[in-house]
């Protein structure tokens, strides 16, 4: 199930470049020592855009919870329905979330609270995107 292709833009280019190199990076405000995702032009806490960096993550996390999508608005994903859509909490800060289709996990057999590790997969135009697999 290939995701829509991605055209990196100015705000998110470092994220996509890192993914291409097999790394997961998340925006971090060095002044607040605070991660944030999705990326923003400014820190969501102090409001400054001067102290934002991209910080490499361990690639480990846990599953907060999930739904099974049967009626997706995105045309290119519809042929893969139903599919898992989970929210992952990053090890470095569980308040920071990422979405995942949990490739390899059967539909509705998602271990809530279980560990996951990042993997990388190509989207429809070849741009690589971070995904998550249930860790053994």
């Amino acid at each position: 199930m290939a995701k829509q292709g991605v055209q990196p833009d100015e705000l998110t280019k470092p994220f996509w470049d890192a993914a291409t190199n097999g790394k997961l990076v998340i925006q971090n405000c060095t002044a607040c020592n605070r991660l944030q995702n999705p990326p923003l032009p400014r820190c969501g806490q102090c409001g400054s855009g001067d102290n934002l960096e991209w910080k490499e993550m361990s690639g480990r996390g846990t599953i907060y919870n999930y739904c099974v999508v049967y009626d997706c608005p995105i045309r290119s994903l519809q042929e893969g329905q139903p599919f898992n859509l989970a929210v992952i909490m990053l090890e470095e800060d569980p308040a920071i979330q990422m979405y995942s289709h949990l490739p390899g996990t059967p539909v509705d057999e998602v271990p809530i609270g279980g560990p996951v590790r990042v993997v990388f997969e190509p989207t429809a135009n070849g741009q690589v995107v971070p995904e998550w697999e249930v860790a053994a």
Binding site: Q7, F15, I74, L85
Partner: peptide, 25 residues
Amino acid sequence: SAAEVVPGSLALGPGRTIWGPPGCF
């Protein structure tokens, strides 16, 4: 939702990301 390629910021959300959450997700 019908596009083959989307901008990187849209792809990452929080709303209609490339992971395809319906409105009620």
